[in-house]
Amino acid sequence: MNFTKVPGRNRGKVLIYALSTCGWCKKTKQFLKDNGIEYSYVDVDLLQGDERDKIVKEVERWNPSLSFPTIVINDSLCVVGFDERKLRETLKI
């Protein structure tokens, strides 16, 4: 699996599709970490070849504009960009 898990309180399955160089992606990861929420992330820019194509398709399914961060919660809800209010609401922070 390509995802790196960051431990914390479980508020459901939280996946962050990120770029290693992106400021908003860093803010999103830091926000969840600071609030002690468990999440997994993948830095898509660091992937190559088939692995990258597969993850890119996954992101596009949720967010056709293929922008980052794309946060998918419980395989059912997608938050695009660092939207603190929406994250607080959805993850009950």
């Binding site: 770029l19 160089t21 992106c22 400021g23 908003w24 992606c25 898509v44 820019d45 890119v56 293929l66 922008s67 980052f68």
Partner: peptide
């Protein structure tokens, strides 16, 4: 990449 690709977009 050899150029300043936007850090917040997938180059």
């Amino acid at each position: 990449y050899g150029y300043w690709a936007c850090p917040c977009r997938l180059a």
